[in-house]
């Protein structure tokens, strides 16, 4: 993406948000009549105005840069979820769990990245983020292997790279 100044970036994120909202409306309704499309436009504009008023459209909360990489990231995340899900299932059935607390470092720069990382840790079965302290997470893991997987820092790197 070319170097953009702050205002044009903001406009671009507004347009993206509007398109996302309208596509979402269309998926949920599925109507193609022009009158109903007009009503959809009105409701999308209303939601847009409300989120503008609630200051939900700051640069930090709608990161444009990562939107194109997001599908690949989700595929990768699903793979991770599946891997640790199988491990957790095996632990539940054979009963060889040994819960432990570990602390994990996060190297993301903005708040969205940190929230993303904490969510990804909680989303993979077998690890839960308990507390977030600036750049350090307190994580509860179900077994030693799961906590070691987390401490190899792979997930941290992938999510930091999302925001380059």
């Amino acid at each position: 993406m070319a170097k953009l100044n702050k205002d044009s970036l903001k406009t671009l994120s507004f347009i993206t948000y509007f398109i996302i909202l309208f596509v979402f409306w269309f998926i949920l309704s599925g109507y193609l009549k022009s009158l109903l499309l007009f009503f959809g436009l009105v409701s999308v504009l209303f939601v847009f105005w409300m989120s503008y008023r609630a200051k939900a459209l700051e640069e930090d909360s709608l990161p444009l840069k990562i939107i194109l990489r997001l599908p690949f990231y989700w595929i990768w995340l699903f793979k991770e979820i599946f891997k640790s899900g199988v491990t957790t299932t095996a632990l539940i059935w054979n009963g060889k769990y040994s819960p432990q607390l570990i602390s994990v470092k996060a190297s993301q720069k903005n708040r969205t990245g940190i929230a993303n990382y904490a969510n990804a840790i909680t989303l993979t079965p077998g690890t839960v983020t308990i507390e977030i302290d600036k750049k350090k997470f307190l994580v509860h893991a179900l077994s030693k292997k799961l906590s070691e997987d987390l401490q190899t820092d792979d997930m941290n790197k992938v999510i930091t790279d999302l925001d380059k």
Binding site: G85, T89, H140
Partner: peptide, 28 residues
Amino acid sequence: FILSGSLGLIKLPDVFSRIHAAGLIDTL
């Protein structure tokens, strides 16, 4: 996976470990 998660909800020892079982149901 839902069966394993429900089993984990009963079997695991404390709140924190039971969250893992609930997460298994939610995701997989």
